[in-house]
């Protein structure tokens, strides 16, 4: 009974917040969301931002090093008793 009451209060709170459900899907929005170009899309050149390769390489290196680093940390914390190896 009290659980029901609390649950309905929760829903009332959610309804009050009127969360726009459709807009919350993160998968719709790859962060390609650049602000609108002032001259309009058709007038924009092939690339509004030129260069920036060092940032791209930094991001890819970070991702790869992150995977390697986390895997290494898991390897060093692996359970001692078990004979199988951890990656």
């Amino acid at each position: 009974m009290k659980t029901l009451v609390a649950a309905s209060v929760l829903f009332a709170g959610l309804a009050l917040a009127d969360l726009p459900a459709a807009e919350q899907k993160p998968e719709v929005v790859p962060e390609a969301a650049a602000p609108k170009h002032p001259q309009g899309i058709e007038n924009a050149g092939a690339g509004v931002i030129s260069g920036g390769w060092e940032y791209v390489y930094a991001a890819y290196t970070l991702g790869t090093l992150g995977v390697l680093g986390f895997a290494t940390s898991l390897f060093f914390r692996r359970p001692k008793a078990q004979p199988e190896r951890t990656s």
Binding site: K2, T3, V9, L10, G13, L14, L16, A17
Partner: peptide
């Protein structure tokens, strides 16, 4: 004010549960 009230209600009920 609505958002404040909603926050209160949500956390009161979640904490209550």
């Amino acid at each position: 004010l609505k958002l404040l009230t909603a926050f209160d209600l949500i956390y009161l009920s979640v904490g209550f549960l």
